[in-house]
Amino acid sequence: MERISLKKSNLFKVATVFLPLALIPLFDHNPYHLDLFTTVGIYALLAMGLNVVVGFAGLLNLGYAAFFAIGAYTYALLSLHWHCPFWLGLPIAGLVSMFFGFLIGMPSIRVRGDYLAITTLGFGEIVRIAFNNLDAWTGGPNGLLGIARPKLWVPSFEGGLHFETWSFSVNPAPYGYLVLGLVAGTACLLLRLSDSKFGRALVAIREDELAASCMGIPTLKVKLYAFGVSSFIAGIAGCVFAAKQTIITPDSFDFVLSVLILAMVVLGGLGNLWGAVLGAAVLGTLPELLREFADYRMLVFGLIMILMMIFRPQGILGGQLIQRELDVRHKESADGAS
């Protein structure tokens, strides 16, 4: 058996992709590019999170934006009412979102396939409408404004060692690094996860649930964990989003966003972590590249989506996963023989 630990090769992979990206803000000070960089990073977090349920476990979730919204509103409310610092809000937002993930997952994971899709879709709509209607807490359609930006404590040596607080500002570059760090961290976590017992159980369930349960995999429990992990990531992404925008309104979390994230996962290649990141990069930047088209923009966007899928149905990086699984199996049997 392979050892379950954070393999050096995984760290290396993550570093080769993200270190060059980390250089971008050093050379490019254009705030628009950096903002786009950050936004794509948030999309990438969401796509990686959704990939856990859709790509690894094969559960179609059409209400993913709801978990993103829960994370964003959690941090916004914590910050506005209790002046909760960002770094504490980040895990709390993830945990609250995960709690709701379990809550919606527990009853609905029993339903199979596309029925799960519609319960999650229903949940997504319920959350958005509730945020829009609960004026007293969420500000209704006006949303919440004045959400605190993250602060850092920077050591200063002038006149003895002490710490100065340094706050994020409108400048998107620090957010870019923050998001990049989170994306890299999540990538490491997920790579480790997919090599673990849990990851294999997920793939087994996706490929053949019945066989998996016959092999003694607690399918319901494993699926529920997947749901939890995925909503945790969405909650984190929501928290960062709220801290970056400083204003959140329910219309940022509509069904179209859920669909867009799903499209990123599928376009990149289902079940492939790098695919999710790439899908986020493509679908996140494409509308920006098309901005010049003004009112033709979304028409061209739709057309490109159709063409991409027709010419590359398995997704840009798709088809590697099966290969990988075969490789692993091959290697394991070789290990067994030796």
Partner: peptide, 23 residues
């Protein structure tokens, strides 16, 4: 063209078609 591809693929083209028709 996607009849033999993973099911979700056609779902994504249907979203693309939806964007296209609307616009």
């Amino acid at each position: 063209p996607l009849r033999n591809s993973p099911r979700l693929t056609a779902l994504i083209t249907s979203i693309g078609v939806s964007f296209f028709l609307q616009n």
